[in-house]
Design a protein around this nucleic acid. Structure first.
Length: 398
DNA sequence: TCTGGGGTCCTAGGACCC
DNA sequence: TCTGGGGTCCTAGGACCC
């Protein structure tokens, strides 16, 4: 492996997360097919997956496939607690951790070779710690890029470890079905199948331009790059979510406008609390509706200024509901949701300073001056944005 | 008891600005 | 009556992910 850049990114993914927590906490469930959820399958243990149970399958279908399965109600608090414990182990392994969801994350371990060994050693210890300290099985994939690390973890599930050695990427990738590519879902898979493309290798052989004419420029470029193992994205620490939302399934019985109002009020009330707790402001309110034929519609409004006030969000949401009223005359509404997007930080302060690469100590000085201005503990987060000169320098306003 | 609840990113058209 | 090239922001829809 000398001379070649080593696999440096790990993708760690808990196996059948919710179901594994249930089996951990209730010995009776161990070794048995377990389904978490009621109306739809939120998670299935590997014993249940062996019968063809998948998420998000309707509950009745899952029970038909696997009548012996034990169906348990989700316990989101337990999952959240388990997730926190696992993420502590991630961050104890390396400071460069990018969480993707409650049960998976990317870890950049490239700087750890000297102190912690090669990626395979690190991954092995990580898996042992999650097993010993939290009691859950976790699969870890490793490679030179995020995408390949993720494919590797999927390929070694359940409870596996797979490192894609540098130089072997395409041999690993090309035999896989296109569905493994990030961005290929049911619709794109169908379109590719119609064009006779079933594996990643087929897709790579098609070439970028024909892929673009088949799927559109953005998707074509993206998928072609992935199929060639090209994925330059770094592991990003401290990404903040760009939106928060909540929704309620309403069932099929007919709803009155008052029913919808009541539901929207409850949703917005909860969102306002979450927004303030997270110390964020939103500028755009989106109303989301699903109809009984499973078609969807959205209506949105952008506010003059960012807000975290429930009353402002509420009146905006009700205006949107009025906007959508016309859509509801001939179809039943089976789901209503509200999302808040264009999120800002509360009390964010932006400073612009010249920066001389020979004087890196200026960064510390900047933090000190921020603390001086706002109080030592008032500064909770600082974001460094670099502007560089040269060919890619941002264009200046007229 | 016949389809959850949370998100991300991209596209396309129109209004508007210089 | 003919006629531009840049850009931003907003809205709506859609694919996709876990």
């Amino acid at each position: 492996m000398t001379g070649i850049p080593a696999a440096t990114i790990l993708h760690a993914d808990l196996d059948s997360f919710y179901a594994s927590v249930e089996q951990r906490d209730n010995p009776v469930l161990r070794g048995r097919p377990v389904i978490v959820g009621g109306g739809v399958v939120l998670a299935a243990s590997y014993e249940a997956k062996a019968f063809g149970v998948r998420t998000p399958m309707p509950g009745h279908e899952a029970r038909a496939l696997c009548p012996r399965a034990v169906v348990v109600r989700p316990r989101f608090e337990a999952y959240s607690e388990a997730s926190k414990a696992v993420f502590e182990i991630f961050r104890d392994t390396t400071p460069i951790v990018e969480g993707i969801s409650v049960d998976e994350a990317f870890l950049d371990v490239s700087g750890l070779r000297m102190i912690a060994g090669d990626p395979e050693d690190i991954a092995r210890r990580l898996r042992e710690r999650v097993r010993d300290e939290v009691g859950l099985p976790i699969s870890v994939g490793g490679a030179r890029s995020k995408f390949l690390a993720k494919v590797a973890s999927a390929a070694c599930k359940p409870d596996g470890l797979r490192i894609v050695a540098p130089g072997t990427e395409l041999a690993f990738l090309h035999p896989l079905p296109v569905r493994r590519l990030w961005g290929v879902g049911a619709v794109t898979e169908r379109r590719l199948a119609d064009a006779g493309i079933s594996t990643v290798g087929d897709l790579a052989a098609l070439g970028e331009s024909r892929l673009c004419s088949l799927l559109g420029r953005g998707a074509g470029r993206h998928l072609f790059a992935l199929s060639m193992g090209v994925d330059p994205r770094r592991v990003e620490v401290g990404r903040r979510r760009g939106s928060i939302g909540a929704q309620r399934a309403l069932g099929r019985r007919p709803k009155t406008r008052a029913d919808l109002d009541t539901t929207v009020i409850a949703i917005v009330d909860g969102l306002g609390k979450r927004l303030r707790k997270a110390e964020r402001l939103c500028r755009t309110v989106v109303l989301r509706i699903r109809f009984d034929d499973f078609s969807r519609a959205t209506r949105s409004r952008t506010l003059w200024e960012p807000t975290d006030r429930t009353d402002v969000i509420m009146s905006t949401a009700r205006t949107l509901l009025d906007d959508a009223a016309g859509l509801l005359t001939d179809r039943g509404c089976t789901l209503v949701g509200v999302s808040l997007t264009n999120l800002d930080d509360t009390d964010a302060v932006q400073l612009t300073l010249p920066f001389d690469a020979d004087h890196g100590a200026e960064l510390d000085t900047t933090m000190d001056s921020l603390r001086e201005r706002f109080g030592r503990d008032a500064v909770t987060r600082a974001v460094l944005v670099g502007h560089h000169h040269g060919a890619d320098a941002p264009m200046l306003p007229d």
